[in-house]
Design a protein around this nucleic acid. Structure first.
Lengths: 258, 258
DNA sequence: TTGCATCTTGACCATTTGGTCAAATATCTC
DNA sequence: GAGATATTTGACCAAATGGTCAAGATGCAA
């Protein structure tokens, strides 16, 4: 249940991540296939890619994530990405046909992992535990992958030029499904009546805020999620606020149910 | 208590806005003066500016807000801003010495209004009413000035290159002051013990989310804050979630206290 | 109307930057 | 090790873009 992936090992690990609690794997795969053109074949297993190709593509994607998340699409330059990846611009363009192609590949690279936590929300589970777990996962994501969060935020704020179709289809389906789960909990009297979609938005907003606005948070508090203590504090505050907000007790009284 | 300003009349009205509940006017002015270079003299009253200068500067600032919020600083072009403002690029550069100068002026133009709501949080008031009012104001802002929200978000996400000093000084002071107010409420037993700074962050995050991610929200729900019904729904959901989250009753039982 | 200051613009420039290409250079296969 | 294939790079190009400038147009005060 701990998050140990590093960005370097993103690619190798993410299939495992998705398989955990294997329920929505299909939807997840679909997401990757839809729209974004990068890595037509050999999308997950690096099959058909030479050792050197595999290595360089990963170097590029890592560098690109840093650059795009820091500067946005327009502000990023392929030259800098190439430098960061330790190769010439020409060479980078040997692996990706254009700046936009790098960008799309980077987005695709992330999207899957980024949306994974919501999929783990279990209709059978205890609402308080499930929601608390989801919130914790999302904050953990913001802590470990703030660049991914900012890249995603940037893309959406610019009007989601690349991923709009995915939002409208796959993500929409997923949100509707999980909103249904929450609604069932509500109808079962397990939590206060509240619009589940807004609840999901609130969880997204609060958790991602700490990554996207980390500079502001550091300016105001002197700390950010990279500080373990601040991370815990944030987890507690957000979780207690939201759980109490939906009428659930928090912290959980330790497992007293027989 | 309703928000009727349009962007066109931004400049003329904001002094009034700030004066309402006049407590923090000084801090507010300071904010404008700090750092951002735009409009050295004649900052509020358009004194010393010709009729034509006043008109054109406003045209430019309006156009710039649209362009910068849509494309980010790097993605924006002075040519497009000029076109949108109905003048030639050369002419625009007669009014602002550089792209960066336009950007800073636009930020300054907004910042004051953007931070105003927090200043109205009244230590003497009823906590539930005060917090609900603050949340409502923030959502209203997101509804009326989504571009301003996105501009601000963009700036902060890029590392706040222009406004970092302001965040570290003026905004920090303001947040500390208002966190103190909330803490007093907590110590008076009026609301559940929770970190007030995280509470403020949560309110910012949730309310601004609806502006910054409006494309995603439209993709998922088919609506956004420009729809009055959705606006009301959002206000209710967010307010009830947060107020219940801090242990306050919502909706307010109508004024039963003697 | 005249003369001055303000305003406006097109032509122009320098830089940045995404992308191409042909010529090396390394790697792999036999 | 020869030859084919894959990788790497510097030189180069065209377009986009921020900014300058001199000259012309407009507004305004007397």
């Amino acid at each position: 249940m701990t998050f140990q992936w590093t960005l370097k090992s993103f690619k190798n690990q993410r299939s495992d991540i998705v398989k955990e609690k294997g329920s929505q794997v299909v939807g997840c795969k679909i997401i990757l296939m839809t729209g974004l053109g990068g890595r037509t074949q050999a999308s997950s297993k690096s099959g058909g890619m030479s050792r050197i190709q595999e290595k360089n593509r990963n170097l590029i994607l890592d560098a690109a994530l840093g650059e795009f998340s820091k500067k946005g699409f327009s502000g990023a330059t392929v030259e800098r990405i190439a430098a960061e990846a330790g190769m010439s611009k020409s060479n980078l363009l040997y692996y990706f046909t254009s700046k936009e192609a790098i960008y799309n590949a980077t987005l695709a690279h992330i999207l899957e992992v980024w949306l994974a936590p919501l999929k783990t929300l279990d209709p059978q589970g205890d609402p308080a535990k499930e929601l608390a777990g989801y919130i914790r996962q999302k904050i953990e994501m913001s802590a470990k992958f703030p660049e991914a969060s900012r890249l995603f935020a940037n893309e959406v704020m610019q009007g989601a030029p690349q991923i709009l179709p995915i939002l409208q289809t796959d993500l929409k389906r997923l949100v509707e499904e999980k909103a249904g789960v929450i609604d069932d909990w509500i109808n079962a009297g397990k939590l206060r009546r509240i619009d589940p979609v807004h609840l999901i938005f609130t969880i997204w907003a609060t958790t991602q805020h700490y990554a996207d606005f980390s500079v502001q948070i550091r300016a105001l508090t002197g700390r950010d999620l990279s500080d373990p203590e601040f991370l815990k504090q944030t987890e507690d505050s957000v979780t207690s606020l939201i759980l109490n907000g939906v009428g659930l007790n928090w912290p959980l009284e330790d497992e007293e149910q027989g």
